[in-house]
């Protein structure tokens, strides 16, 4: 119910015209602990902004920063573009998989973490880099990955 009210509030604040779609989507995703836009939210957005649901879904599924399926509280995005790739981003991704016990594209059972590849977010000078929610971490090694996961687990408690 809260999510519904907050979604409506966000639409009202940002504006209820079709051109506000992306802004509204970003804001609505941030309202959700699981970092995604729920079907109920998308329905409200579609009605509120007078956009067909298919189009709202099309836009939400187009951008990698938006999600239409459940993610973790911490969304771990491993950069897979050129500079990170040649600096062993694959090893980093593997380390996260081992540390979290999930594969790419999955969410941990406790809902804390989700793991995915992303394209460049501008951390090339500290490659290999990852983005976790709004924070960027670079110069990663396998060991640093385990430490990072550990500290986030503690932070969450």
């Amino acid at each position: 119910m809260d999510l519904e009210n907050n979604t409506m509030e966000a639409i009202e604040k940002i504006g209820n015209t079709p051109d506000k779609l992306i802004e509204v989507l970003i804001q609505c995703q941030s309202l959700n602990q699981q970092n995604y836009i729920t079907e109920e939210q998308l329905n409200l957005i579609s009605k509120g902004l007078n956009i067909p649901l298919s189009k709202a879904y099309g836009v939400a599924s187009f951008y990698s920063m938006l999600s239409t399926s459940k993610k973790g509280k911490y969304v771990i995005q491993v950069c897979n573009s050129g500079p990170c790739y040649v600096n062993n981003s694959k090893t980093i991704a593997k380390a996260f998989q081992d540390a979290l016990g999930i594969s790419l594209g999955e969410v941990t059972a406790d809902g804390l973490f989700s793991l995915e590849y992303t394209s460049c977010f501008g951390g090339c000078q500290i490659a290999p880099a990852v983005k976790i929610n709004d924070m960027v971490y670079g110069n990663l090694t396998e060991e640093k990955v385990w430490q990072l996961v550990d500290s986030l687990r503690k932070e969450a408690v």
């Binding site: 079907e39 998308l42 956009i51 067909p52 649901l53 298919s54 189009k55 709202a56 879904y57 099309g58 599924s61 187009f62 951008y63 990698s64 239409t68």
Partner: peptide
């Protein structure tokens, strides 16, 4: 003006489908 279908996803994952 019905909008039952639209582009879903991006790049090689793109397909044409209804929402969800």
């Amino acid at each position: 003006g019905v909008g039952a279908i639209y582009n879903v996803n991006r790049s090689c994952d793109m397909k044409i489908a209804p929402a969800y």
